[in-house]
Design a protein around this nucleic acid. Structure first.
Lengths: 165, 165
DNA sequence: TAGTTCATTCAGAATGTTTAGAACGATGCA
DNA sequence: TGCATCGTTCTAAACATTCTGAATGAACTA
């Protein structure tokens, strides 16, 4: 292949890897996706490992990760028993959904922690006195504020979700 | 301090640490923020290191990181030469801005990589023939598609940004 | 069946990130 | 000035993540 053409794609692949990392995805998976995205023909594991200069094991694991996300799919090439993969080109929604899921889960855990803290304070009830009473009051206020932030973030994610669809 | 009260906050702090990690922030910084957020009085480095059971160096670096972000500020306590910090309670916008900045920078780099690739192909111009000519055509198409995705993501970020304000 | 080619798995190597804690300089005070 | 108490910086260690490459077994061929 024309090495200039190849190099131009390398830059893109590299950049998508960085972007993926920034979004908490695996760099290799992101690079693999970019490579598949730019390729017209499906690629074999060998194609990918040669192109990205990484081990076959690495490609194997990560390309199946992409498949799991719905970002790539295995295709059958007549007369060849190797596995070939091609990119799901319309991946935008898939990735954002994935990011949303991770974030939502963490946020829900935080909401649980907030509720748990509130419960603990409620249990303490009238038993607090002096300094502790004041502290409990501040805690209740802050936890309330934390819940507000939770709901704002939640609304933001929902809105983003709708925009994507 | 009432240890039940303290424990209830610990759960919250822990959870915010996890959430912060998920957003690409430093776990310690996130925990420190949560701790300051819950505290009515400003805290000294010693207070924080004891509470989170981490080294003073660690606290020093990360609390100043928070200050840099505008998420915490140093306050002067009369008659005490130690540094005290308190949380900027309305931190929502600050954090999201920060996340936006990071993401936007990466995306801009990707856009540059796309444009660079396009330029390289354009330079090749009519010199491609046969297989390469076809490849160049596919590349142009895919890069066009990549730009589309870039602009959609960009729009999404902009919209989110407006919602936050 | 023996030999070849493939994908997968997994232990440990390589790499990247975070932390502890010692060393240091600055500040305040007697 | 000498001592005590801070905050900061830095190195090496701990820890977490990612990657390689050898081992394995499945699928195919002659």
């Amino acid at each position: 292949m024309n090495s200039k053409l190849e190099k131009s794609v390398d830059g893109f692949v590299e950049s998508i890897g960085q972007l993926g990392s920034n979004l908490g995805l695996n760099k290799m998976a992101a690079q693999l996706y970019a490579l598949l995205f730019m390729s017209n023909d499906p690629l074999s594991l060998d194609d990918m490992m040669k192109r990205l200069k990484v081990s076959k094991g690495n490609v194997s694991v990560n390309v199946r990760e992409l498949e799991k996300w719905g970002a790539a799919r295995k295709v059958w090439v007549k007369g060849d028993r190797r596995d070939f993969y091609k990119a799901e080109l319309d991946v935008f929604k898939i990735i954002t959904e994935r990011l949303k899921t991770g974030l939502t889960r963490r946020m829900d855990e935080t909401l649980q922690a907030i509720k748990q803290a509130e419960e603990t304070i409620r249990e303490g009830g009238g038993n607090f006195n002096g300094k502790d009473k004041k502290t409990a009051k501040v805690y209740r206020e802050r936890l309330e504020k934390a819940k507000e932030i939770y709901w704002r973030l939640n609304g933001l994610i929902e809105t983003a979700s709708k925009i994507i669809t």
